[in-house]
Nucleic acid binder design. Structure first.
Length: 932
RNA sequence: GCGGAAGUCGCCCAGCCCGGUCAAAGGCGUAGGGCUUAGGACCCUAUCUCUUAGGAGUUCGUGGGUUCGAAUCCCACCUUCCGCACCA
């Protein structure tokens, strides 16, 4: 099957018909957007998932009659492309082979990649081609990149207005930093892509003569239990004036303090061994403590000097034990914790059998006590002001009162910049940030979220949590592609901050693209008019932009991967709430999971990346789209199985093969025909409801698979009666299926539609309506037939008989009357045996059950174990003439399939043949069966 | 730690939102049969236990609870995976 020809044929038609170009008209609109791609590589199957889901949504909405705007842009902002250009310049073999071997980028293109813009432009074109080839219904007239002059005007407007509202501030902010480059480093900038995470220590100053001995700690509240200070005897410490006071610190610490913005002036050195024996006064004014030697005191951690709290810190207890001798300080217990004894550190060391201070398990002991005491501990009376507080409170109080007013920040592990330099933590004190911690702002955002639909619903609760912990966030950085802050050209608006309200820009982009408005005209005042309706329009074009904005805004649906929930999607909500009036706040967010390949994340190093264009070229657009959508429901991570693609392709091909001009039917529908139409009606209903909830896989399964098995049964039934399935019914089903398939597999569906002679394209036809009322009788009657077939088959299987004659005893009229009464009772909620019996005995037609309560018992059990739908069907249908149905419908089928003579009798009719006394067991929907 | 997701019949995985059609779809594996010179591919049948009449029993991480009825709802616990900020 050559899908590529069909893909190309329909893509050309759509383009010719400008099917996806959207402009305001009288219809109701839907504005559907997806997070635009970052063009630092071609897209792979994983990227394709989000876009495919959004495209299906857009196409579905078009079929529902909406004027759908589905645009696309490209996110150039940020540093990764910059880093990539640098690595290509350096001839990094990993990057080069990735481009060449995985993505097949030609060498002459790679040669230009030393220029980051060339990289972005190349992949932008590549991604756009791919999106067209897979059939996304995008209005390309609105395409832009985030470094286009017009977009820059837009971002400038955005940050200016945010600043006007007092939401952009300036402050100090710690970052991972490369001293050689003089730049902040993020994960993308480090060797091995290590995230530069850091720990914040409090610094407490012990006094020793005129000098200060600073110690760094995570537990300032334990200072009351400090019995000594540890110095490493083999380390040469530095004596330095820090912020004007003379401190003793390790050389490493001195270097860190400089980056943290402290004023450090070296004055000399002192060996650790020389410090031993000195005495130091703790900051809370307690009795002086001695300095003692310990080799675990690491000059690279903290200040290189350690406060010793032997009762609660296993390292400290162990170092004292290692020291030995008589005149050592006694541990002071300052925290009582349920489940821990007097001296938790000693107990932990003894339990783990720790030998000396070099034992690695001390880490384990430390974190265990740390956690237990923090959550369950209370300060004892030995703690001065802190006595009686819970540890968590005491920590804050101690920090407030006893530690220096800044924190010592330190990288958790060694991080190296790609340039090879060892990174440090630096505090930038002129960092621009967005104040996402602002309470009033958060309240607006929460209100926006509350009114918004989030699909799947399960993920909605995640957003308020994110809002809760959100605080200031740096919104500008010093390098990368993007837009400079209008008031401070040294800074570039950071990539997550310049992409929060850009959906509004799609409206404008069309006018810029068509040359109707120049970037220079997009002044802050003009944009105020377009987006906020402030002031008079400076030109007719600006006025039209305003009209178009009013038509398309707000965003009706925002699609994105779930990894963007804690950042982009939340910022999207926050920024809309900050800048736009309530009626322009977004209405829906749709979140999808990621894509796995053979159970693993796609990554270059694993070599399991499948480029989207390659997959489409090999399998065709629709099979790839379907495989992506079928592999998982929205929120689940989709484990792509490329092995399933040929099967999907075959199924589409078979469906296509069945599309022809069709023929007329005999007119009056038979029982199985009525059933088939009822199944179709219910499938349309179910698929529509699935679509509304973006449960695309569910919808697709209904259209592709569920109907198929219904059709099989229907054909079997038709043929058992010695006739061909009614072609007019077949066609009605097929038309509905093709239409419902269209959002998912648009090329194949249009091809099928053409072969059906449907007129126009499937994509431009309306989504099918269920039509008509429920036909409970058809559903129930067919249920009787299939249920009885199953019962016969089951009997044959357990007995191993090959039957020559099967006699079926249908329930008689009085049994059916009782059954209806039981159904009614169950529907009314009075489904207990007692009240059911009482009701039956009161009815003239049903009083006979007095002699056979077992019948009622069984019927009741069966009724209760049917689905609500089946119960409603049976109740609505009223008593069925089961003997007639079984004779006309079941008998031919059973005869054909079991190769036996079939006789249908009505139980209770006079003189019937009943050699084994089976007839008495007949119940409605459960006829008695005799196999001979 | 905080937040989120998940644990299903040998394996993978559907079902859970909306309780009953659920001994629980589908795929893989396994067994038997068909086809074939053979292998593969393909097709059919079986695949929790018991059962020569459509049945019964025990199952959906563990333990409770709600209900006439729980894989599905509620509570607790155990285990695994993911995110936690200046980065797209």
């Amino acid at each position: 099957m050559n899908w590529r020809d069909i893909d190309a044929k329909w893509q050309a038609r759509w383009e010719e018909g400008r099917d996806f170009e959207a402009e305001p008209d009288r219809r109701e609109k839907k504005f559907i957007t997806v997070a635009y791609p970052y063009p630092n590589s071609p897209q792979h199957l994983g990227h394709g998932r989000t876009y495919t889901i959004a495209d299906v949504h857009a196409r579905y909405c078009r079929m529902r009659g909406y004027n759908v705007l589905f645009p696309m842009g490209f996110h150039y902002t940020g540093t990764p492309i910059l880093g990539m250009a640098r690595r290509i310049k350096d001839g990094d073999p990993e990057v080069l082979s990735g481009l060449r071997d995985i993505f097949g980028v030609p060498d002459d293109a790679i040669a230009t990649f030393v220029d980051p813009m060339k990289i972005a432009d190349y992949f932008r074109a590549e991604i756009r081609r791919g999106m067209i080839e897979i059939g996304y219904s995008i209005d390309w007239r609105r395409e832009f990149t985030t470094v286009d002059p017009a977009y820059r005007r837009f971002v400038e407007w955005q940050v200016l207005r945010l600043r006007d509202r007092g939401l952009i501030g300036r402050g100090s902010h710690p970052v991972g930093w490369c001293p050689a480059d003089g730049n902040p480093v993020s994960q993308h900038d480090t060797m091995g892509d290590v995230e530069p995470s850091f720990t914040e220590y409090d610094v407490m100053l012990f006094k020793s003569g005129g000098r200060r001995i600073p110690v760094a700690t995570l537990r300032p509240e334990t200072v009351h239990g400090a019995t000594n200070i540890w110095a490493n005897p083999d380390v040469e410490y530095e004596v330095a004036a820090v912020d004007g006071e003379e401190w003793i610190i390790s050389k490493e610490c001195a270097a860190k303090l400089v980056h943290l913005g402290r004023d450090v002036e070296p004055r000399g050195t002192v060996r650790g061994s020389e410090l031993v024996g000195a005495s130091a006064e703790p900051p809370h004014g307690g009795p002086p403590v001695p300095v003692l030697p310990a080799r675990f005191a690491d000059p690279g951690t903290g200040t290189g000097l350690v406060m010793s709290v032997p009762a609660h810190a296993p390292y400290d207890w162990q170092a004292l034990a290692d020291l030995g001798g008589d005149d050592l300080p006694e541990p002071v217990t300052i925290i009582e914790t349920e489940g821990l004894g007097d001296c938790p550190a000693r107990e932990a060391c003894e339990r783990l059998g720790i030998k000396d201070q070099d034992d690695r398990r001390l880490e384990e002991a430390t974190s265990e006590i740390y956690g237990k005491e923090f959550y369950g501990g209370r300060m004892t009376g030995a703690c001065g002001d802190l006595a009686g507080m819970r540890v968590a409170e005491a920590r804050d109080a101690a920090r407030e009162g006893l530690a220096v007013p800044w924190r010592l920040l330190e990288l958790d592990a060694e991080v190296k910049c790609r340039c090879g330099e060892r990174c440090v933590v630096r505090v930038l004190d002129d960092q621009w940030f967005l104040n996402y911690g602002d309470d009033a702002w958060k309240r607006d955002a929460a209100s926006c979220l509350g009114a918004m639909e989030v699909l799947p619903p399960a993920i909605k609760q995640e957003f308020p949590r994110v809002l809760e912990w959100l605080r200031e966030r740096a919104c500008a950085r010093q390098r990368g592609l993007g837009t400079p802050l209008p008031w401070d050209g040294d800074w570039i608006v950071e990539s997550l901050s310049d992409s929060v309200i850009y959906m509004a820009f799609y409206v404008v982009a069309r006018f810029v693209g068509a040359g109707e408005v120049s970037p220079d005209e997009l002044t802050p005042g003009a944009l105020d008019h377009v987006f906020l309706g402030i002031g008079d329009p400076p030109s007719p074009a600006i006025s039209r932009m305003r009209d178009e904005f009013l038509y398309y805004y707000p965003v009706d649906s925002r699609h994105s991967g779930r990894d963007l929930v804690p950042n982009h999607l939340t910022f999207f909500v926050m920024n809309h709430a900050a800048l736009f009036p309530r009626e322009h706040w977004p209405r829906q967010i749709v979140v999808n999971g990621s894509v796995l390949m053979d159970g693993k994340k796609m990554s270059k190093s694993m070599g399991n990346i499948v480029p989207l264009r390659a997959a489409v070229a090999e399998h065709g657009a629709d099979p790839v789209r379907l495989a992506t959508l079928l592999s998982a429901e929205l929120l689940q991570d989709a484990d792509m199985d490329m092995g399933a693609v040929p099967g999907i392709s075959k199924r589409l091909e078979a469906l296509l093969g069945s599309c022809g001009p069709g023929g007329a039917g005999p007119g009056a529908p038979a029982a199985e025909d009525r059933w088939m139409l009822e199944r179709l009606r219910r499938t349309v209903l179910a698929a529509t409801s699935s679509m509304e909830g973006m449960r695309l896989r569910e919808a697709l399964r209904a259209v592709l698979f569920d109907i198929e098995s219904d059709l099989q049964w229907w054909r079997r039934r038709s043929r058992s009666k010695g006739k061909e399935p009614d072609p007019s019914i077949e066609r009605r089903v097929l038309e509905a299926r093709v239409l419902m398939l269209s959002p998912f597999a648009p090329h194949a569906a249009d091809e099928m539609w053409e072969r059906l002679g449907g007129g126009g394209t499937a994509a431009r036809s309306p989504w099918p309506e269920p039509g008509g009322a429920a036909d409970g009788a058809a559903a129930s009657s067919e249920g009787l037939v299939s249920g009885t077939m199953e019962d016969i088959a089951r009997i044959l299987r357990t007995t191993g008989m090959s039957p020559s004659r099967i006699t079926i005893y249908a329930a008689g009229a009085r049994a059916r009357a009782a059954y209806q009464a039981i159904l009614g009772a169950a529907a009314g909620g009075g489904a207990d045996m007692k009240s059911v019996m009482r009701g039956l005995l009161a009815g003239a037609e049903t009083a006979w059950v007095k002699k056979d309560p077992g019948f009622v018992q069984k019927c009741l059990k069966e009724v209760l174990s049917e689905t609500a739908e089946a119960r409603a069907d049976r109740l609505a249908a009223g008593p069925l003439d089961e003997a007639a149905i079984l004779r006309d419908e079941l008998a031919p089928l059973a005869r054909a399939e079991f190769g036996a003579e079939i006789e249908v009798l009505e139980a209770g009719a006079p003189g019937i043949r009943d050699p084994r006394g089976k007839a008495a067991h007949a119940r409605p929907f459960k006829p008695a069966i005799l196999v001979e």
